[in-house]
Simulated assay, not measured.
Amino acid sequence: MATPLALTKEETYMIADSLAQASSLVLDLRIRQRATLSQEEQQLLEKHENHLDMLVSLFRAYGIYLITEDAQQASSELMQAIDKGKARLKRITDIKAGIETAARLVDLGAAILSRDPVALVEAAASLRSKPKKDDAPA
């Protein structure tokens, strides 16, 4: 049976900090592509950026509790998935792929909050998979 496991304060802050960096990359993408963004794209990126910032605040204030037998492994996989999303945001030139990646990061943050192991696995796998549109591999 799965038991709840609270990540250490350090682990929680690592995840929160990594999501904060992802939010910053979404902002960077929004600024970098400003001239080519439609109003809808601008709003979507800003919405995802705001959601990431909110998740960061929640994680820092309340910590992260995972319900899984392998919570420590899950923590490592979460960081790897976030890092993959951040790397993708750094190199993306196609704005739709950027919006999709930002949304996947928000989904991962929401899955962490939900403490649903299936949602966590799916959200992390989503970030590890290549978006429909992406630029050349780094």
Rank of each mutant, 00 (worst) to 15 (best):
P137L: 10
D70E: 15
E69K: 08
M54T: 11
P131L: 08
I112E: 03
M79Q: 15
K132W: 06
A138W: 14
A87V: 00
T68A: 09
I82H: 01
D134A: 12
L58Q: 08
S38M: 07
T3Q: 09
S114D: 04
L120R: 04
K133T: 08
E11H: 09
A71W: 06
G85L: 00
L127H: 08
L37K: 01
P4D: 09
V106N: 11
R34T: 03
Q72T: 00
M1R: 03
Q43L: 11
P137F: 02
I92K: 06
M79E: 15
L19Y: 14
L58R: 09
F59W: 03
T101P: 09
G85H: 13
R91V: 01
H48P: 06
A103Q: 14
V56I: 04
E100R: 06
Q39H: 11
V106A: 05
E11G: 04
S126N: 12
L78N: 07
A71G: 10
A61L: 14
E77S: 13
D28G: 05
M14W: 10
L19I: 03
S23G: 13
L55G: 08
D70A: 06
P117M: 10
L55W: 11
I99D: 12
L45G: 11
D28Q: 11
L7K: 05
L127M: 08
I112H: 01
R115W: 02
A103L: 01
K47L: 13
A103N: 03
P117I: 00
S114H: 10
L44K: 13
A87F: 00
V26C: 10
D116Q: 12
D70P: 01
L66W: 07
E40L: 02
S114Q: 04
A110S: 13
V56F: 06
L113G: 08
A119F: 01
A97G: 15
M79S: 05
K47P: 00
A81E: 11
H48Q: 15
R32G: 07
E69M: 07
D116Y: 03
I31H: 15
M14E: 13
E77C: 04
V121Y: 04
G85D: 02
K47S: 14
L105C: 12
A124P: 06
A2Q: 12
A102Y: 01
D70M: 07
D70C: 03
A123G: 07
I31C: 03
L120T: 00
A123W: 00
D134V: 06
L5I: 08
E46Y: 09
T93N: 15
L58C: 07
D94G: 04
S18A: 11
L89Y: 01
E10L: 13
K130E: 10
T36G: 01
G109W: 08
A123D: 05
K86Q: 15
A103G: 05
S57T: 15
H48F: 13
S23K: 13
A61W: 13
Q42I: 07
T3N: 14
G85K: 05
L25D: 15
E77P: 01
I82E: 06
T68L: 07
